[in-house]
Amino acid sequence: MFYPNSPQTSPQLTQIPYGQQYAMMQRQIQQPYHPFATTEPQARLYPYHYQGPIQQEQGGFITQQSTAASPQYVQMRVTPVDQSIMSGYPNQTANGSSSSSFNYNIHPQQQQQQQQQQQQLRHHAMPVGSVPLQDDRYRKQLIVNYLAPDVTSTDLHELFSRFGELDGARIIYDKQTNMSKGYGFVYFCHAEDAKEAVERMSGYEFHGKWLKVGYSTNPLNIVPSNSSPYVHAGSRGAAG
């Protein structure tokens, strides 16, 4: 039997160049792979992502010199942007860049009308829970959420009447099932009393439920100042 490094198959040491006398086997001759043993700084910083320098080929596509990437890492192929796409944008300079302001050559009167329309939209648009300043009635009506099913309009009136005089209180019921929808409205005579009720009743436990109280901004629920107070009856038909 002959071994790869046996004296019968191995040459004389004098015939082997210096430095390879003890590297006779194939696994010894093959050098191990060192990912950080390279002179390129990109490979030292990113050993798993770097795959060699990027070269520009004919046709405008950018390719990489090395083989496919590892399945664990996804390499994105980048193509140059066609400058003709950006030619339609206004205020574009000769080098292809555009300024931040756009001039669509709008007539001054049209621009003024658009600004007025935007101001009107901001004036009428009102986020949930906010209180408008032009109508004091919005500051007097509250919406009470997360009410228990057994709470009546009379219970709601008695709960909030300790903060001040009320114009009314009612629970909203479903017309088909005649069941409470879980929320109601309270109408105060003074805005200061309503503000105190919002601050003190939010998070209050009532009939096993934690109440959420806020201003009601729905104009359909506003009680006119010259109208008669609501009837605080315990029956659902009268309260709904």
Rank of each mutant, 00 (worst) to 15 (best):
I172S: 01
H34A: 05
P132S: 08
Y46K: 15
F160N: 00
S130C: 12
S100K: 14
G240A: 07
R77Q: 04
S98I: 11
I106K: 13
I16H: 14
A239I: 05
A125K: 08
D136I: 06
Q42Y: 09
F163G: 01
Q28K: 15
Q55R: 13
Q31F: 04
Q116C: 10
K181L: 13
T39M: 11
Y138Q: 02
Y33N: 15
Q15Y: 03
I143W: 01
Y183N: 00
E196Y: 15
Q72W: 04
Y183R: 01
N218I: 00
S99N: 10
K209A: 02
K195N: 12
S101K: 10
P132K: 12
Q116D: 07
A69N: 07
H34K: 14
Y187M: 01
V74W: 15
T154Q: 09
Y89T: 07
F36L: 07
Y146F: 07
Q20K: 15
G234A: 10
Q117S: 05
H207I: 01
M86H: 11
Q111E: 08
V128G: 09
N145D: 01
Y187W: 00
I172G: 01
Q55W: 02
P108S: 11
E40I: 10
Q134F: 07
S216R: 01
S10L: 04
H207V: 01
H123Y: 12
T177R: 04
F206N: 01
L121S: 09
S98G: 09
Q15E: 06
R137V: 03
C189L: 05
R122F: 04
Q134W: 14
T79V: 03
Q55S: 08
P41L: 09
D82Q: 14
L121K: 10
I62F: 06
F163N: 02
N218Y: 01
G240I: 05
V144F: 01
Q92H: 10
P41D: 05
F163H: 03
G60H: 13
A69D: 12
Q113S: 07
S10C: 05
Q92G: 10
T63C: 05
N226F: 07
K140R: 08
V198P: 00
L211C: 00
Q112T: 08
Q116G: 11
Y187G: 01
L13V: 12
L142E: 00
Q8S: 11
Q109V: 08
M126G: 10
H124M: 06
T63L: 03
P35L: 03
H232Y: 13
M201Y: 04
A68V: 10
S10V: 06
Q113R: 11
Y215H: 03
S66A: 12
T39D: 12
F188E: 00
D136M: 12
I16S: 12
P47I: 01
M25V: 10
S87E: 03
A94N: 09
P149K: 10
N5S: 09
G184K: 01
S153H: 15
Y187S: 01
Y104K: 12
P127Q: 07
S161H: 10
H207T: 01
D150A: 11
Q111T: 11
V81Y: 06
R162A: 10
P224D: 02
Y48E: 11
T154F: 04
G164V: 01
S153P: 02
L142F: 00
Q120N: 14
Q55P: 08
G240S: 06
E205P: 13
Q118P: 07
D155N: 09
S84T: 10
R170Y: 01
L159R: 01
P7G: 08
N226W: 07
P149S: 02
L166R: 00
S70Q: 09
L211Y: 00
Y50P: 13
Y3I: 08
K181W: 01
M86T: 11
N221E: 06
N91C: 10
R137I: 03
V231H: 13
L13E: 11
I85T: 13
Y173G: 02
M179E: 04
L45V: 11
Q110G: 08
M24P: 13
Y215T: 01
V213G: 00
S98V: 08
T39C: 04
W210E: 02
N95E: 04
G129A: 07
M76Q: 14
S161R: 12
M179S: 07
P47S: 05
K175W: 09
S97V: 08
P108F: 09
K181Y: 02
F102Y: 13
S130G: 08
H157A: 06
T79A: 15
M201I: 12
Q15S: 09
Q21V: 02
R170L: 05
Q119M: 12
I172E: 00
A233S: 09
T177Q: 06
L220S: 03
S84Q: 06
L156F: 02
Q110R: 13
L13H: 09
N145A: 02
L211E: 00
T93W: 06
H123E: 05
C189K: 15
M126D: 04
P17V: 03
Y3P: 11
A37V: 13
M201L: 04
G237V: 12
R137S: 07
Q30E: 07
P224V: 09
Y89P: 12
R236T: 05
T14W: 13
F185M: 01
Y48D: 13
E205S: 06
A233P: 09
H190N: 12
P17K: 14
A169I: 01
I172Y: 00
F102A: 09
A197R: 01
G60W: 02
Y138C: 04
D150M: 14
Q55M: 05
H124N: 12
G168N: 00
V131L: 11
A194S: 03
T63Y: 06
